[in-house]
Simulated assay, not measured.
Amino acid sequence: MQVDFYHLTVTPLDRALPQIAEKILSGGGRLLIVAESGAQRAALDRLLWAYSAESFLPHGEAGGEGDAHQPILIATDTLAANDARYIALVDGLWREEALGFDRAFHFFDGDRIAEARSAWKALADRDGIERRYWKQNDNGRWEQAA
C-alpha cells in the first residue's frame, strides 16, 4: 500500500488533484475524494466539471442514486460506494481508513503541516506501507523528497 504525501506550496489543490485523477481514470481506476467541508466538496464538484476547456472528469457527490457507477466520488468519509481503490484526502486531515485502499494521496498545505508530520511518523514502522513525500520546487514541479 502506497501513501503519497503532497505538500501544496506553489500549485493549489485545484491544479494538482485533476492531474492525479486523470492518471487514475486513464488506467481504468476509480477514485474516492474525501473532504469534510461541504463548501470544499461543492468547489471540487465544480472544479472537476470545468478544470479543462477540452474535457471534464466524470464524477458525482456521494449520497446519490448512482454512486456505484461514478468513476470519481466526492464524499465526507472513506466509504467507497464506487469501489474505488484510490483515495485522495484533500482537506489536510489524515484518516486511518485510507490504509484500506491500494494507494492514498494525502494533500496538505502549511496550515496542516503538523498533522501531516504526525501521520508520516505514525506510518513509519507499519508493515506493507510505502510512504512518499512530494514537494514542489520553485518552478512548481513535483519532486519526491522522501
Rank of each mutant, 00 (worst) to 15 (best):
M1K: 12
M1I: 08
Y6D: 07
T9N: 09
V10L: 09
T11G: 02
P12D: 07
P12I: 01
L13E: 04
D14H: 08
D14M: 07
D14P: 04
R15C: 06
R15K: 15
R15W: 02
L17F: 03
P18A: 04
Q19I: 10
E22V: 15
E22A: 13
I24P: 07
I24T: 14
L25S: 03
L25N: 03
S26T: 10
S26C: 05
G27Q: 14
G27N: 15
R30P: 12
R30H: 12
I33H: 02
I33D: 01
A35G: 06
A35T: 04
E36C: 01
E36I: 00
E36A: 15
G38M: 01
G38K: 08
G38C: 03
A39L: 14
D45V: 12
L47W: 12
L48W: 07
W49G: 10
A53G: 08
E54M: 07
S55N: 09
S55P: 02
F56W: 09
F56S: 14
G60I: 00
G60R: 10
G60Q: 12
G63A: 05
G63Y: 01
D67L: 07
Q70S: 10
P71K: 05
A75F: 00
D77R: 02
D77T: 09
L79Q: 13
D83T: 11
R85M: 12
Y86V: 12
I87P: 01
L89M: 12
L89R: 08
W94P: 06
R95Y: 00
E97N: 05
G100M: 06
F101Y: 15
D102P: 06
D102G: 14
R103L: 04
R103H: 13
A104Y: 09
F105R: 13
F105W: 14
F108K: 04
D111W: 02
R112M: 09
A114C: 00
R117M: 04
R117Y: 06
A119M: 05
K121F: 06
A122P: 09
A124I: 02
A124R: 15
A124S: 15
R126F: 03
R126C: 06
D127P: 15
G128H: 07
G128A: 09
I129D: 04
I129H: 05
E130H: 08
R131Y: 06
R132H: 13
R132L: 08
K135H: 07
K135M: 10
N137C: 04
N137G: 09
N137Y: 03
G140C: 03
R141K: 10
A145T: 15
A146L: 02
A146Q: 10
